[in-house]
């Protein structure tokens, strides 16, 4: 409220505004059919050269939604080794609302391998697991 008194200038936005922590992080990610896939545990963005002047450099863009070890490091700190990160490239994002909707199917996302493993090795083998409830 105090800011309103100062009347700071407002910049001009030429497109939809997405605040990363507010609109993207920790949101549910759904596949093209609305099936839950994962949460947006972190975002991968274009590299910013460390310690160098950014004069004339391109604005970094969101490259991918991350999953996997990105969550544990956000909880306990540290930095995830980039080899263990599971990525959903930004080009697969269809829309951002109360959930992030993808243009692809859940089974085509790397991060769902655990879900598929549990399904194929445990749930599928229990009688009735493949049928709708009655």
């Amino acid at each position: 409220m105090t800011d309103e008194g100062e009347r700071l200038p407002r910049p001009e936005y030429r497109g939809r505004v997405l605040d990363a922590a507010l609109h993207l992080l920790d949101r549910q990610v759904q596949d093209v059919h609305g099936e839950p896939v994962q949460t947006a545990d972190d975002l991968e963005i274009g590299d910013v050269p460390v310690g160098e002047s950014l004069e004339g450099a391109e604005r970094p863009r969101i490259l991918a939604i991350l999953n996997g070890t990105a969550l544990s490091t956000r909880v306990v700190g540290g930095r995830p080794p980039s080899s263990t990160l599971e990525r959903i490239p930004w080009r697969h994002v269809a829309d951002v609302g109360t959930a992030i909707r993808l243009t692809i199917e859940a089974d085509d996302v790397d991060a769902t391998w655990r879900e598929r493993w549990v399904r194929d090795h445990i749930i599928r083998r229990i009688p009735g697991g493949r049928h709708d409830p009655e």
Binding site: E35, Q38, A106, I122, I123, R124, G129, P133
Partner: peptide, 23 residues
């Protein structure tokens, strides 16, 4: 657990479509 981690969940899905939830 499923909602925190963003897994597929719900009884309206058959169990194979919400594997970790049922586990």
């Amino acid at each position: 657990l499923a909602q925190f981690f963003g897994w597929s969940w719900g009884k309206f899905r058959r169990p194979t479509r919400a594997a970790r939830f049922h586990l």
